[in-house]
Design a protein around this nucleic acid. Structure first.
Lengths: 142, 142
DNA sequence: GGTTGAACCTCTAGTAGCTGCAGGGTGTAG
DNA sequence: CTACACCCTGCAGCTACTAGAGGTTCAACC
């Protein structure tokens, strides 16, 4: 039987985060000691590992909820799990593309700045005038 | 004189977002009509354009606050503006690197899934067992 | 058996950067 | 002078946690 702290250590999760997952129904309510402290078993360890791993891969908590649900039903088709992963991959592609456009623009800004006064700083100048940008970029909400 | 709505249209900003920027002190309190509606001039249009452009390049509102401050003092050295931009660029590099690791792992997951039952779905299997991952990935908090 | 101290408990509020809604007032074109 | 699009304030909600206050429990050591 694991305390919440040792479960956290094993999975690289903060104690508060585990309680948060329980609160939003991602983790089940575990058994308690007489004094009211949470105690976890293997099943919970597996579930939390799954969640954390999926988070590391960038899945949203909602996507993880679906994946866990699928994982709990071994007889269902895995098309849905596949679709969720593909969706996630697509998002990653998009985010990389956006960030690469940003990188280009920021590099240009930084390389052109020769370190004088702010009055003729390229960094500030570029920010002032969007027309100076060569690439499309659109990071907001990415 | 611009209404808040037309200022929003010119800069691609929602009305609520402009009011939010005012609330947190990023935009100044504008003049008002007798009836209490906000009216903006050129200076505010420039300032909001600057803010939005910097946001598109991924700068945080705090960084933007600093950049605006520097922009308001043309006689200062632009080292600071340069440093902020370099910091931002570094973050972009890191985020790209992380996302590329994710991409690799997600591609592997998706390509190996041959579409049977969830019981032997590669997607779910990989999520269950971190040891199957070939690359380091650590997206959480990115 | 008693004491200590780390780890646990609940509850609330805060983070970034907006977004949306309710319920009401204003400005302007026809 | 009347529509009606637009504006106002204030507050709740979003994601995914994180931090802190103030109090309780567990386990080890003597």
């Amino acid at each position: 039987m694991l305390t919440i702290g040792s479960l956290g250590k094993k999975t690289g999760t903060k104690v508060q985060t585990i309680r948060y997952y329980e609160q939003i129904g991602l983790m089940p309510e575990p058994g308690r000691t007489e004094g009211g402290q949470r105690r976890y078993g293997e099943a919970e360890l597996d579930r939390l590992s799954f969640i954390r791993h999926a988070r590391q891969l960038g899945f949203s908590l909602d996507a993880i909820r679906e994946l866990l649900d699928l994982s709990d039903h071994p007889d269902r088709s895995c098309d849905e799990a596949d679709a969720i992963a593909r969706r996630q991959l697509k998002q990653v592609y998009q985010r990389i593309a956006r960030l690469e456009a940003l990188r280009t623009e920021l590099e240009r800004m930084v390389h052109e700045c020769s370190g004088g006064k702010t009055s003729d700083c390229r960094v500030l100048e570029v920010l002032r005038d969007h027309a100076e940008c060569l690439t499309e970029h659109d990071e907001i909400g990415a």
